[in-house]
Simulated assay, not measured.
Amino acid sequence: LLILVLLPGIGMEKNNSQRWIQLGSLIIQPSEAVKLVMVIYFAYVYAKKQRYIADFRKGVMPPLLILAAVFFLILKQPDLGTAVSILLSCGAVLLCAGLRIRHLLLLGTMAGTGIAYFAMTAPYRLKRLTSFSDPFQNENGDGYQLINSYLAIDSGGLWGNGLGNSVQKLGFLPEAHTDF
């Protein structure tokens, strides 16, 4: 499904991203399902490979190759946030599986360097990160979505407005269907 998303005529593009497949009136985002599938896959594989967990090449590496393929397919959409959340989730499974600390540090350093590289080399990603750290610096531009998401959370108070009853999504939150 991650490959199908990238094919012209099958993958649906919106806001310069091609992350969805439309099947009639149903729109699916395969990367959301992949989040769960990868965690289950990693938990299953590393539960079975416990006796090999100290052997990096035999016990740790094979599932990491699949994780790398998934990471790059999602990055191609482009969706660094989802790719990073999958990396972190699978990293947590590795930690719980009892991976050697030195292997964990090596993988963490490689992942951190790669994430920093991809974040810094795409100007829109860097702009998004800086606007996230101070959305009020450009409240009518890059910070608009985040500021209005704050307002949406605030207006709901402790108990919320109820499912579908947000006021902010009625024209103030441009991409209400996303992370917010």
Rank of each mutant, 00 (worst) to 15 (best):
L129T: 07
G141F: 02
L151I: 07
Q50V: 06
N138T: 04
K48Y: 10
V84I: 15
F180N: 03
I101D: 03
L88V: 15
A33R: 06
I28E: 04
L99T: 10
I153M: 09
V167R: 13
T113M: 12
K48Q: 12
S85Y: 02
A33D: 11
Y144G: 01
P62K: 13
T82E: 06
G160A: 10
L173N: 00
L151D: 01
G171L: 03
D142L: 05
M120G: 07
G156P: 05
V70F: 10
G112D: 11
D134M: 02
N140S: 11
Q22H: 02
V93D: 05
P78W: 10
T109Q: 02
L129E: 08
T121G: 01
S85D: 06
F71M: 11
S85I: 13
K49E: 07
L75K: 01
R19D: 04
R51F: 08
L95S: 10
V60E: 00
A47I: 07
Q22N: 04
G59P: 03
G141D: 07
S131I: 01
I10W: 06
D55P: 09
I40M: 13
Q137R: 14
I40F: 14
A176R: 00
H177N: 09
T121K: 12
Y41W: 14
S166R: 03
A43F: 11
A47T: 14
T121N: 12
N16A: 14
G11M: 03
K48R: 15
S131Y: 00
I28Y: 13
A43R: 06
R19C: 11
P8L: 07
Y52P: 00
K169L: 07
F172E: 01
L126E: 09
F132E: 01
S85E: 08
L104S: 03
Y44I: 06
V93A: 06
W20F: 13
W20Q: 06
V45S: 04
L173K: 00
A68D: 10
V5A: 08
L23Y: 12
G98D: 08
L158E: 08
